[in-house]
Structure formats: C-alpha cells, structure tokens
Design a protein around this nucleic acid. Structure first.
Length: 295
DNA sequence: AAATACCTGTAGCGCTCTGG
DNA sequence: CCAGAGCGCTACAGGTATTT
C-alpha cells in the first residue's frame, strides 16, 4: 500500500507559540489553548530528533496512545494534533478519532441522593465549616458549576441573580429567596459586604480544587460514600430534582446554561421569576440542625 | 453519529499564613 | 521563628457539552 509522502517540518517551540496565537485568534478558551498546546507538545516529543514527519508518524503516534490511554483521552489528544495540522495547512494528514460507545445508564452508586446531600451539609455544620456548607447549598439550589462559585458576589446575590460571563456569552443564575437570605446572612457574619462571597482567608476567591477537597473531607463525618461526593454531583442532583418536579426540560436547559435548546429563552418572557417558584419548591435548603460526632 | 471544544476530577507541590 | 496546616496553582487524564 502506498502511503502519502507529504511531509511536515518538525514542531519547534516557536511553531507552538505561533499555534497558541492562532488558537487565541480563533477565540478558543484558555482551557482549550492550554490543553491543545500541551497535547501538541506531547506529540512533538515523540518525533524528537527528526527534521520532518508524515502520516506514518501520526499513525504510529495514534497506536501508541491507544496502548496507553482510555478512548476518550486518545480522542482529545488527537483532536489537538488535528487542530495543529489544520493550522500548518496540512489537513490531509489528520487522523481519525476512535469511536466511543455511548453510555446507556448512569453509574448508580455515583448518584448522590438528596439524603446524602443533607447529611453532608449537616456534617459540615457540625464540624463548624460554614463556608463549605454554604457552598454546597448554593451549588445544590442553583445547579451552578463548581467553577462558577467564584462569580457569586454580594451585590448579585442581593439582587437575586448571578451573572456568569463567559467570553461574551452571559448566563444568569437564579437565586431563590431562601438561598438569598441565607447567603447574605453568611456574608454578613463573615464581614463581607461587597465583592466575592466565597473567599479563602487571604481574601481571594476560592479555587474549585479547594471546594473539592473540603467536600471529600466530609465523607466520614457524613457517613456517605466518598466516591459520590464531588461538586459536579450537586449539579446533577439539582437537575434531576428539578426535572422530576417540573418535567420542564427546556427550562432546565436554560437554567443550566445549555445553549443547544435556546440560549435566549431565559432573557425573554419570564426571566427567572417563574422558575423561582419552581426552584423554591425543590426544598434543597438544609435545615439548621444539631450536633453529633463522628467515630 | 462523529468530531470538536471545553470543563471537571484529582494529585502533588511549593508557598504562605498562623499558633505556639 | 519554626513547624505544620492551609491554600491555591499546575498538570494531566478523562468526562461532558456543543457543533457539524
């Protein structure tokens, strides 16, 4: 079999820099730029020492990846290299990604129940960790992403909506009255009257990895399997509960910021106030409760 | 349905506070 | 001023969401 002889010059550090600029100009997100450059660098290391490379090297690289990584990782790494090939004007060298079997069922023991969640909040209170308790309640009642917690400011909560700005695209998170008063009380107690609500002792906005660690640390005290304790699961809990109650899929997509249904809906007819009643009925605020200690 | 773009889970490390 | 706890950045793997 005759393989394409088309060759491309090896990838230098300055090529990668130019690639970065290209991605930036394409308005890729910071996370994407970082991942793509990392993955292209990885490929460039495997062809180290050569002046050029062609389809043969790419196919070998793909085989190598398949041997070492999961399918979804292989595909994401190939996507980066393919993007680079597009950039250098060699789209014919792109390699096909692997097929992925669609998951039919959600892993059941990963499902965080309302009960689990309430136990976690109670545990946080018992251990006198009001911040993580408040963050968990905030995530559960808004369905926000963990990285969005940093966007919550006193001003926005006071207003009842939190704006998440993402590269020109804005999304509004609805704060129920229950959550609003509780968060404001929390902020006041902490002496925070303006700006970000969830901050570390240095006054900087809390990082998502910190939230993750705090949540994991509550597993024992709460008596909940640590494997299902992670921030994103609170978003799932919110989504499930909302849908079970309202059967309103379009509305849910809006609240979660899924643009595929209709991103503009939320700004039209009933921006929030109609959801507000529905969300309030979810009853996801944890009751203030007493103390007990962990073994 | 497949490809692409983006985001989260998770571990580790090094810096920085804080209490003694 | 030191030890240890806390913090938060970084990196990588892999999952999720959106576009084609």
């Amino acid at each position: 079999m005759e393989i394409s002889r088309r060759e491309i010059g090896s990838i230098t550090e300055s090529d990668i820099e130019a690639f970065k600029v290209y991605l930036y100009e394409q308005e890729r997100s910071d996370a994407t730029i970082e991942k793509y450059t990392r993955d292209v660098r990885k490929f460039s290391e495997t062809i180290e020492g050569r002046d050029t490379f062609d389809k043969q090297e790419l196919l070998e690289y793909k085989r190598e990846l398949i041997g070492g990584y999961k399918t979804s990782s292989v595909n994401s790494m190939l996507a980066a290299v393919n993007c680079y090939l597009e950039f250098v004007g060699a789209p014919d060298l792109k390699v096909k990604s692997l097929k992925v079997q669609k998951k039919l069922f959600l892993d059941e023991n990963k499902e965080l129940t309302r009960k689990d969640y309430l136990k976690l909040v109670a545990a946080a209170r018992r251990l006198r960790r009001p911040q993580i308790a408040m963050i968990m309640e905030t995530l559960a009642t808004t369905g926000a992403r963990v990285s969005e917690v940093r966007s919550f400011t006193v001003e926005m909560v006071r207003r009842g909506t939190v704006d998440i700005v993402n590269k020109g695209k804005e999304r509004t998170i609805i704060i129920t009255n229950d959550l609003r008063s509780k968060v404001l009380a929390y902020a006041e107690e902490k002496g925070i009257s303006t700006g970000e609500i969830f901050v570390t002792r240095n006054g900087r906005a809390i990082d998502r990895s910190g939230i993750w660690k705090e949540m994991k640390a509550l597993a024992c005290e709460a008596g909940v399997d640590a494997n299902k304790i992670y921030p994103h699961n609170l978003r799932h809990l919110f989504a499930r509960t909302f849908y079970r109650l309202t059967k309103n899929l379009a509305g849910l997509a809006d609240i979660l910021g899924h643009s595929s249904i209709s991103a503009t809906r939320i700004y039209t007819a009933s921006p929030g106030s109609s959801f507000k009643k529905d969300i309030s009925r979810l009853d996801l605020m944890a009751p203030d409760s007493g103390a007990q200690s962990c073994a």
